[in-house]
Design a protein around this nucleic acid. Structure first.
Lengths: 131, 131
DNA sequence: ATAAGGCTTCCAGTTGGTGGAAGGTCAAGC
DNA sequence: GCTTGACCTTCCACCAACTGGAAGCCTTAT
């Protein structure tokens, strides 16, 4: 498979696939003309990383998960630990965003949104500078 | 005020304040020794940006908001628009994270988390590679 | 033969800063 | 008067995780 095929099948841009090779996730063979030749295994691994990334795992998480994925004798507990930590991180991000949302929606609701210069949003952000 | 005072009072690291000068948010005067001299107005603006950033506004949003903040004749509608767009973005981020959370917590719940190599998390991410 | 498209490498830029080196300045203590 | 330490300066490099673009092969179709 050439990079274009793999890109289409994995859903990852070709640029990203080259990047994933750069950082060592895959090591595709090369054909005589210098083109990368991807195996099914490469495709699998790329799709794996794509899904893991979309679930919020970092690249370093993916590296860990890939190693566990490749190690047929790994303990599921190791994987679960990585996943659980990710869950904690996600919860923290959601909580932070909800906090932001609350403050901001309050400000938006208070703002008349007309032609007048009075704006509770800016007042709240800056305090009134010298009246 | 020197940068250290402003850093303490605004809650922003000195490095970040220099960066905000770089990108044109402030233009502090310099004293004879080359040290930045910050006015109260600079402090205000920096605190403003700090609060806006913590509410999820991007640097470019902050630039817009600062311009509106400095324009005594601006319409509150302009500000409200920026804020509302930000709210939409925040909602999208929350929804995405909740989707992730759902998938991931399901996987974590399914995983035995013991010494055995069977792991629904990895299976789901990769599909079983050659049985 | 040529044009379109796919592939290659490499370099630079993105966002929003952060870390560190090398060096000037200032105030206090001995 | 000198040293020590804290504070300030600039500049350059780096973080994640790509993305864009230039310059130049390779392949395929007309």
């Amino acid at each position: 498979m050439n990079i274009g095929d793999v890109a289409e099948r994995s859903g990852l841009p070709a640029k990203t696939i080259r990047y994933y090779e750069d950082i060592g996730f895959i090591r595709p063979a090369r054909s005589a003309n210098g083109y990368r030749q991807f195996s099914d295994r490469d495709l699998h691994k790329l799709a794996f990383v794509g899904r893991a990334r979309s679930l919020g795992f970092t690249i370093e998480d993916c590296r860990t998960l890939l190693a566990l994925y490749e190690d047929r004798g790994r303990a599921s507990a190791d994987v679960k630990l990585v996943a659980k930590q990710n869950l904690v991180d996600i919860d923290a991000k959601i909580a932070g965003l909800q906090e932001m949302r609350k403050t901001l929606s309050h400000l938006v609701a208070c703002c008349a949104g007309d032609d007048r210069p009075d704006c509770p949003i800016l007042d709240s952000l800056g305090g009134v500078p010298e009246a």
